[in-house]
Amino acid sequence: MSLGLQLSVRRCGLIAPGLADWPAAVPVLLGRAPYQPAELAKPVSERVPPRERRRHTFTIALALAAAHQVLADPAEGAELPAVFACSGGDTDVIDRICQALTLPERPVSPQQFLNSVHNAPAGYWSIADQNQATTQSLSAYDASFAAGLLEAGAQIAAGAPEVLLVAYDVPAPAPIWPFRPLHAPCAVALLLGAAGLPGLGELRVALTRDLPETRLTDPELERLRAGNPAARGLPILAALAQGRPAVLALPYLAPAMLRLEVAPA
């Protein structure tokens, strides 16, 4: 089903084990450099003052660092609507709160309680960039990336010149992990704009049931893609890096898939 939705991808951000950012990812996505996953340290966004940064969990730091990769200047974020897409939320915070609830005095940390809400990363980003525009924080299990892209695209179709999309997910700590065994942490940020704006390429978005989910050829990258809802956006980045027109299918709410025609600039 055509949605008549056409977007420009102005910039890409990416953080995953062994992939520090978009420039570092391009040779890997082109197959010119091997993908070598290494343990991902907690990302640091230099734009956030240390007094504010101390409140950030790994998940929050990951989302913020990816957002800041696509926003060259803090002022860019001031009037920018944003969509934050995450399947599982901050499972480390959930685990700590659950552990505290087992103790006699139930000493739930106020800071952790504050961080437990699904829009905590969006809130910290709004504070960091003094953003006055709307943010959406959504979750749609394995369809989270596609749902975020659709939401951002809908906002652009409704008149927003640019929308920031940040998709991020982090494997849960041991007690929760078996119920949702994500492979590795990953965040993908896209600065999306109305069609015609300069950038890395354009996306034509439609819904379909007739295409199989697009996979990546490199087995390790495919493990990352299949093992993290945010990494479901990697085929878009691969197509843009390769500079070839492509038709992709990303998982949306089953049986629907998002059909994306990618036209690199």
């Binding site: 007094r51 409140r55 005095e105 000493p107 940390s109 106020p110 800071q111 504050l114």
Partner: peptide, 17 residues
């Protein structure tokens, strides 16, 4: 130290524990 009300709650929890 530049602390705020959330920090006050956090410190109160640590002190009581």
């Amino acid at each position: 130290l530049g602390l705020d009300s959330i920090d006050a709650l956090e410190i109160a929890l640590a002190v009581s524990t």
